[in-house]
Each structure stands twice: as structure tokens, then as C-alpha cells.
Simulated assay, not measured.
Amino acid sequence: MTTPPRILTIAGSDSSGGAGVQADIKTITMLGGYAMTAITAITAQNTTGVQAAKVLSPEIVVAQAQSCIDDIGVDAVKIGMLGSPAIAHAVADLLEGISVPVVFDPVMIATSGSVLADADTIAAFERLMRLAILTTPNVPELQALGDVAGVQRRGIAFLAKGGDAPGDLVVDRLYRPGHAMREWSAARIATHHTHGTGCTMASAIATGLGAGLELVDAISQARSFVRSALMAAPGFGAGHGPIGHQAVR
């Protein structure tokens, strides 16, 4: 029996199960990994938006992660919603001490349009982007970070996701210092059940990297998983419903 890659997700909890650590656990498990969590915030949310949120302390966030690292070990890390600049810096301090691939999903704006990070938190993201092997902004997040040119000037690798851009094709572009831009495109799947796609993409990439895949292969696998889950969405909720992780085989 092959030992599953150990994937630590540092992210918020989504009470409706579609995004955050719940989406990460489903994704990691379906892709053959072993999921561990460090919860940064507890949210009351559903397919229509975020109704309430309680950010945890940096100390308890780091303690959760450290407990996993010290005993189980870790092969890759996925970072999602952080909730405060203090948590962002505390997570950066922690990750500077370990040498595993880190995938950073700079969660700022939910599918519903709710803002999940303030200006100070965005500024604190700089350290995490430098630590990560890949940062995965969607269109609004990329704009908040300075668009493609602004992020390229940081000298980091990032996947500019195109799901929020208009058009019949969804185009994702990988930018890496010293490499030619790599592009993936596919026909848009007509659905409003897209809650948790960003979380799922980032945790799927982290799982691939933890299993030993090269970055381009991990992204390709993750894109296929997300597209399959979009097509298998169960149709729950009155707004942007969850995708169908459990139906992907």
C-alpha cells in the first residue's frame, strides 16, 4: 500500500461545507492524500454569502499546524483564508522553518462577492507569496495584487485563474521567473454552482506536489479534478452552490 501524501491546509471553516477546509479535506482525500487542518477562522456562510465570521488567534492557528507537523509530518501545505495580518505573519514564521511545497490561495473575495481580507492582510501576503512555490489568484484577487505585471515584478510563480473573466473559454496562465508562460484553456462549464472552486484548485495542486508531481503536472491534474467536480455539482442552495467533490472518480 502506498503511503498517502500528508497535506496540511491552513484555512477558514465554511459551515456550509462547500469551501475552506471542508473543500480542502474532500479534495485531498479524493486525490489520495491525508488531510490535516489548521483552522484560521470560523464562518457562518452558505451559498448566498458570509453571514458572520470569527477569526481565531495566531497562537492557536500555529499550534494546530505545529501539532500536525511534529507528529504526523507534512509533504505539502495549502494556505487559504487567513483572516488577519497577524495570522499571515505567524504562518509565514512557521513555514520559514520547514522545507515543503506551499500553495498559497490569496483568499480576499468569495464567490458571492464578500470581502474576506482587508488592506493590511493583503500587505502581509507578501511574505507568503515569496515562501510559496505557487500563488493562485482569481481575477479580482490578481487585480488587488497589482495585475499580472505587478505580480510579475515580485519575482514569484503564480497561476492567474480565468474563471471570473468573461468569455466562452476559461484560460489559466502560469507565470514563473525564468520560464515561458504556460497556458491552459477549456470551454466554460455553464453553471452557477462554483462555490469552493479556488480552494479546491489550490488544495488539489498541493496534493499533487505532495505526491511528487512536477508543478505543471500538478496544475493539470488539479484543473481536471475541478472541472469534473463542477460537472458533478449537486445543485444545492439558492446562490453559488457547492461543486461535487464526492462524485469525482
Rank of each mutant, 00 (worst) to 15 (best):
L142Y: 13
L142I: 01
L159V: 00
T136C: 09
L145K: 01
R154G: 02
R154Q: 13
Q152L: 06
A160K: 05
G150H: 01
L159W: 10
E141G: 05
R153Q: 13
A149L: 01
G162K: 08
K161C: 03
T135I: 11
R154S: 14
A149H: 03
V139I: 13
L131C: 04
P137Y: 06
L128A: 01
R127C: 03
I133S: 12
V151R: 00
V139R: 15
E126H: 13
E141H: 06
V151P: 05
R154F: 06
A132C: 09
L145C: 14
D147F: 07
A144P: 02
D147Q: 15
N138E: 09
A149N: 11
R130V: 04
G155C: 05
V148Y: 05
P137M: 06
V139F: 14
P140F: 13
F158N: 09
F125S: 04
L145E: 03
L128I: 00
A157E: 06
T135V: 01
A149P: 04
R127Q: 12
L128P: 12
L128N: 06
F158Q: 11
T136P: 04
V148E: 12
L145H: 03
R153D: 14
G155N: 12
K161E: 06
R127Y: 10
L142H: 14
T135W: 08
T136A: 08
M129G: 04
A149I: 04
L145R: 05
R154H: 06
E126D: 15
I133H: 13
P140A: 07
Q152W: 14
L159H: 03
G155K: 04
P140Q: 00
L134A: 01
T136R: 10
K161S: 01
V151D: 01
L159G: 02
G150W: 01
R154P: 00
V139P: 02
T135D: 09
F125N: 06
A160W: 08
M129V: 03
T135A: 07
I156M: 14
K161I: 01
L142Q: 09
A144K: 11
Q143C: 03
L145N: 05
D147G: 07
L145M: 08
R130M: 07
V151H: 03
L131M: 07
L145T: 02
A132E: 00
M129L: 15
A160L: 10
